[in-house]
């Protein structure tokens, strides 16, 4: 590939406008995605929570199980919303509907389209996070004023996964491959200290889990909503930001060589 002039992808906004326009025909699908994490909160947080009672969180004090699980579901919903957009919907636009092909024959470039897609995916994830934090407040599950930062933290989680999803999608050849991504997300959702603390694991397994991206997101959001704020959270932020930047770069480069051939 030859050298191209670098340009700030300002027209990425157009992609967001396009998705918003399409979304008006299909708003129920996106909106209803908000319901699932709330159901998990009610079912697992309160239903099972009544059996679990309290959980110790690091620095000696304990919280109710619902307080423990809620931030994990908040981070997961940011992940789910973002990654669904940047895998299934992106693949549909790329391969099946060839929306991208039409878009890039206008002044909107591949970089604009990629960044726009990622931003839209972050937006969808953020929508769920904001909705979820309101539910948490209403149910009294916020234990610290630091929780105000939980929303930007979830947006960061959304960014990291939107970018990862977009990068992975550029390698996908057929719909069935997307099921593999889904299949990988499920264990991540179930094992990233979402429903129980990492202390449950044997040390080696614990180390492994601590290096997965959703664990980082959950650790960050949980630290903020429960008030367990320490320098470790900055490590989470760095991890997620780097993952997002790498993902979005890979996605843009791969899309460029694929669409502009």
């Amino acid at each position: 590939m030859s050298v191209r002039t670098l340009r700030i992808p300002t027209r990425s906004v157009r992609m967001i406008e396009r998705n918003a326009m399409a979304f008006r025909h299909n708003w129920m699908v996106i909106f209803s995605g908000f319901v699932e994490p709330v159901l998990y909160l009610l079912g697992i947080g309160f239903g099972i929570g009544s059996l679990v009672r309290t959980i110790p969180i690091g620095d000696g004090h304990t919280v109710s199980y619902a307080v423990f699980v809620a931030p994990a579901l908040m981070a997961s919903s940011a992940m789910n919303g973002a990654i669904y957009e940047s895998t299934f919907n992106l693949f549909y636009k790329l391969r099946y509907a060839r929306t991208f092909e039409a878009v890039i024959s206008t002044p909107v470039g591949v970089e604009d389209a990629t960044l726009g897609e990622v931003m839209w995916a972050i937006g969808r994830g953020s929508l769920y996070s904001v909705g979820f934090v309101i539910v948490m407040l209403a149910l009294g599950l916020v234990a610290s004023p630091w929780a105000i930062l939980a929303v930007p933290a979830s947006i960061l989680v959304g960014f990291a996964f939107a970018a990862l999803g977009a990068a992975l999608t550029t390698f996908v050849r057929q719909w069935q491959d997307l099921d593999i991504i889904q299949l990988a997300l499920q264990p991540m959702f179930l094992f990233s200290a979402t429903f129980f603390p990492v202390t449950v694991y044997p040390p080696a397994l614990r180390l492994l889990v601590e290096w997965t991206p959703l664990y980082r997101g959950i650790d960050l959001v949980r630290g903020l909503t429960t008030g367990g704020v320490g320098p470790g959270l900055l490590g989470d932020v760095a991890y997620l930001a780097v993952m997002g930047l790498i993902g979005v770069t890979i996605a843009a480069l791969r899309l460029r060589s694929r669409l502009l051939k």
Binding site: I48, L51, Q186, F196
Partner: peptide, 27 residues
């Protein structure tokens, strides 16, 4: 078959064993 096998495997490991250990301790 993958889905039918891995989904119960993951759920039982996570919810049954992981979360289960907390439930067993709590109640």
């Amino acid at each position: 078959i993958m889905v039918s096998f891995f989904t119960p495997l993951f759920f039982l490991a996570s919810m049954g064993l992981g979360l289960g250990s907390l439930v067993n301790r709590g109640s």
